[in-house]
């Protein structure tokens, strides 16, 4: 078996490319480190000197405000210098290849590349070509993975539920196109969650879903029953025109999370969403703003989780 490209020779985290294939100990270490960074983010001076003098390049070939911003805040709180590149509008438009862009930035002495790309596997390609002291963090690649989102979801679940054993986690919506769902499923199964469910219409559930170790439901009534955690996925508007769904209203009726449907889950269930939300489509405002929602704490935890990941890769695990 080829060596895991994310780990160095000592089994330490060198790049973060996907949750899939990461051992349990590494996931736990990231979550534990994130917890200590939460302490830092609650102080008046929210900065520690760990990455002083390091340069973090945010390479977003695909748009994102929240993810790019939280990576930027995380890097700044670690005292790194952050350079945001609007690559989609510059080099790529001029015809430069991904690897040439990276090679040029490397010549400007980069330490960490945070890469988001519309093509699955792009961060892997970059990781194979960077110098040994450079690190790559996947900020979302195609339909493949979004590991820091998965990790912040795991952190949020652990924060509210304390342990993973005994939990029922339901992931609802467009699982087929969701890199968030894929990353989270791998994380949940690695950390020993006994029951992971995916709920959605046939057209939006990947054919091999049960091979990932999840139970597939097409009905919210069955799938939400006794869930401890409900993760709603974003429904992208383009799916509607793509003939996978009749309409947003139809989707909302069957798979949108309303207070009434949420009542099927456990009384202390938490509701998560990776954002940005389509209110009235996959989630009703009464739920998004209600007492079960932990959607905004997810965003806050995301900063600490990204601080943990950056300080682990840059410090050699």
């Amino acid at each position: 078996m080829p060596r895991n490209p994310q780990l160095n020779g000592n089994g330490e985290l060198q790049h973060l490319l996907s949750i899939e294939g990461l051992p349990r100990e590494i996931l736990v270490k990231i979550l534990d480190a994130a917890e200590s960074f939460v302490g830092v983010t609650e102080r008046d001076i929210k900065k520690v000197p760990l990455l002083r003098g390091k340069s973090v390049f945010n390479l977003f070939f695909e748009g994102s405000t929240r993810t790019r911003t939280t990576f930027e805040i995380a890097a700044k709180r670690l005292s790194a210098d952050v350079i945001n590149l609007n690559v989609a509008a510059s080099s790529t438009a001029k015809g430069e290849s991904l690897l040439d862009t990276v090679a040029n930035l490397s010549a400007m002495q980069a330490d960490i590349f945070v890469v988001r790309h519309g093509s699955s596997g792009a961060p892997f390609l970059v990781a194979r070509h960077v110098k040994p002291h450079e690190h790559v963090i996947n900020a979302g690649d195609g339909r493949h993975a979004h590991p820091t989102q998965g990790l912040l979801d795991l952190y949020t679940i652990r924060h509210y539920k304390k342990e993973f054993g005994g939990l029922v986690v339901a992931i609802v919506g467009d699982v087929l196109h969701s890199r968030v769902a894929r990353s989270l499923i791998h994380g949940l199964t690695t950390l020993g969650v006994p029951e992971v469910r995916v709920i959605g219409p046939q057209t939006l559930i990947p054919a091999g879903a049960s091979a990932l170790g999840v139970r597939v439901f097409h009905s919210m009534r069955e799938g939400l029953k006794d869930a401890d955690v409900v993760v709603m996925l974003r429904l992208q508007n383009e799916r509607m025109s793509g003939a996978l769904l009749p309409s947003a209203q139809e989707f909302n009726k069957h798979y949108g999370l309303s207070l009434e449907k949420l009542a099927l889950a456990r009384p202390d269930a938490i509701v998560m969403h990776p954002g940005p939300m389509n209110r009235g489509v996959e989630i009703d405002s009464s739920v998004a703003d209600g007492p079960h929602s932990v959607i905004l704490p997810q965003v806050t935890f995301g900063i600490s989780v990204r601080m943990a990941v950056m300080s682990m890769v840059a410090g050699g695990g």
């Binding site: 534990d32 480190a33 917890e35 200590s36 520690v48 000197p49 760990l50 410090g315 695990g317």
Partner: peptide, 22 residues
């Protein structure tokens, strides 16, 4: 837990099990 302020981070990486300062 001054793990995030240690001067050996560049050599040793992040401490094994940093605790939360309170």
């Amino acid at each position: 837990d001054p793990a995030f302020y240690r001067d050996d981070y560049a050599k040793q990486g992040l401490a094994k099990d940093p605790k939360r300062s309170k």
